[in-house]
Computed example of a mutant assay.
Amino acid sequence: MVHLDTPGPDTGIFTTEEVRPRSKPCKSTSRIVSLPRNHYKEPPNLAAGFRSLDLSCEAPVRANLVADKITTDAFRITLETWGERSILYSASATWIEHKAYAKDCLFGQFDTHDLPANNGASKKGAQQENSRHFTFPQAFKDDCDVVCWLNRIDMASGDRNYRIRAYATNITRTGFTAHIDTWGDSLLFGGAMCWIAFPKRKRYVQFGSFQTGDVRSWSNPIPETTSQVKFDDGAFKSHRPAPTVLCALNMIDMAGNADLRVSVDVNDVDTQGFRWSLKTFEDSTLYAAGASWIALGFA
């Protein structure tokens, strides 16, 4: 384990390379993040997802993201793997926070290990489709939507492709159904995602998702796929500087004959929109990937 006590800034992004180089992988990499001084009277709620992953294919590809030890002033964020042979070269995370007991934004977590069908299940018995219905603690007054970010994966490597997707269906003002699925020959031992529910017309907030399929076909894999997102007209027109865009992965579809290397990046953010890219590198093949984003403007 490598841990950095020196607090990092609350930018919404953490990468293991802030603490150690990629060439020195370890099972757990963490650091302390400072929260804005005197901003929270109680420890805030946090939701976090993978922004990038670089995992060895020599064993099951395993990664987990944890935000804990949350106080009014700071928290610890950790990116980790487990097992004797699994190797995490590097990874990065995105997080979002809000005040405890906020009613206009709700966070939660869905883990396939919490499902009765998976309790004590062997790897041989892993399921391809996993879902759970969530009822909100209080109903939204208006229509809402749900953002999903992957934050734990445990999949077979070797000849099996890496395929995982986190998404929401049946969204109403009172709840929704969360899903973590795989398909084809992929073997998903387990996975987890955070979910973030917003009113669709929340002021100074925009959110959505994108994927490589918006630009190219699955059968035409390339190392980097990029395009643009345009905000709704006037959503951030009066804001200076531009809004903050937080983005994390919600889908991966890669060849299993090489290391799992995938990342999402956001650039050129202004009051009109931003440019995104989903990419891999070296000998990894990225058939498809997707991510969800949240743009936050402040009056």
Results as ranks from 00 to 15, higher is better:
L88M: 07
V269K: 11
T285M: 13
T174W: 04
N250E: 03
H179F: 10
K124G: 15
L65P: 03
Q272Y: 09
W195P: 00
D159M: 14
I96E: 09
S292E: 15
W276T: 09
P44A: 02
T244W: 07
Y40T: 01
F281L: 06
L46R: 09
F50S: 04
Q206I: 00
K103E: 14
A63V: 01
V215A: 00
W276G: 04
T78Y: 08
D181H: 15
S263C: 08
G290C: 04
Y89R: 04
G297A: 01
S263P: 01
K41T: 09
K202A: 02
E80S: 15
A242N: 11
F14S: 02
R20Y: 12
G184Y: 05
V33P: 01
Y40N: 06
Q228H: 13
V2S: 13
N151R: 13
V245K: 09
G12V: 09
H179E: 06
I32V: 11
A258K: 10
V262D: 05
R20N: 08
N118D: 02
A295P: 01
R173A: 08
M1H: 11
L188F: 08
D214K: 05
F134M: 08
F50I: 11
Q127V: 06
P7F: 00
F236A: 01
V262E: 06
T78V: 07
I252D: 10
E84S: 07
R31S: 09
A166G: 15
S292D: 05
P21Q: 05
D10L: 02
D185A: 13
I153P: 11
C194N: 14
R216K: 12
P241Y: 04
R152W: 14
S86Q: 08
I180F: 13
